[in-house]
């Protein structure tokens, strides 16, 4: 990411837009940065799981970016990473408790993957690469935009897998089992590799990566 600009002046409108666009599309964490793949493979066999996981990541990445940015001049450099971990894991535990309290069924289906957001590279990556050099609100947007980019890809993979694997979307049957033979492969983990591989390929054809040396 290019974020070496001075931080004193308020970010311009173009900068806001670029931050949003980068996270959602241009530098999408899944199709371009290939981060957070583990949970993408694990929780996308149904659309509702993918959506809840995406929402949880938007919450965690947005807030931890905001917090880290507020603290960015206070964090001693030598304990930078551990301080980031402390902030990230706090928010992850908060969202995990919340899901267990209010969305029990989905929390049970997501199993350990909500708690494993702590190890999701997108969260730490945005903290390190963006929040520590940029003002708080812009960092909040960056975190939320990247996580929304992640959520979007999860939803696309989820729609593909649930539709072909279970013949339904969000539990509503669309492909009747009378004439459609459900493809079990897409419900199981290997199906996620095919779906995600195809997705990354398609997005890289539509939006080819810019050669690195021309940057800035």
């Amino acid at each position: 990411m290019s974020s070496s600009t001075a931080v004193s002046a308020a970010p311009s409108a173009a900068k806001w837009k670029k931050t949003l666009g980068d996270g959602l599309y241009t530098a999408n964490p899944i199709t371009r940065q290939i981060l957070g793949i583990c949970s993408t493979l694990a929780v996308t066999n149904r659309v509702d799981k993918a959506l809840v996981m995406g929402a949880a990541l938007i919450f965690v990445t947005g807030l931890s970016n905001l917090f880290l940015s507020l603290l960015r001049r206070l964090i001693p450099n030598r304990i930078r990473m551990i301080a980031e971990m402390a902030v990230v894991s706090t928010f992850v535990i908060v969202i995990d408790q919340f899901l267990r309290g209010f969305y029990w069924d989905i929390s049970r289906q997501l199993g350990p993957y909500v708690a494993l957001i702590i190890t999701n590279c997108i969260v730490m990556g945005r903290g390190e690469a963006f929040a520590l050099q940029n003002p708080p609100l812009l960092s909040l947007l960056d975190g939320a935009a990247n996580a929304a980019g992640y959520a979007m890809m999860l939803a696309i993979v989820g729609i593909f897998r649930e539709l072909l694997g279970s013949g339904s979307i969000l539990g509503i049957t669309l492909l009747s089992s009378a004439w459609y033979v459900k493809n079990q492969l897409l419900v199981l983990a290997p199906g996620a590799f095919f779906a995600l591989g195809l997705l990354i390929w398609i997005f890289n054809v539509i939006n080819p990566p810019v050669p690195r040396e021309t940057e800035k």
Binding site: T90, I93, V94, Q97, F98, R100, G101, F102
Partner: peptide, 12 residues
Amino acid sequence: LAGSTLFTAPYR
């Protein structure tokens, strides 16, 4: 953490 745990405990 303590706040969120206490708040969600009855529901959990």
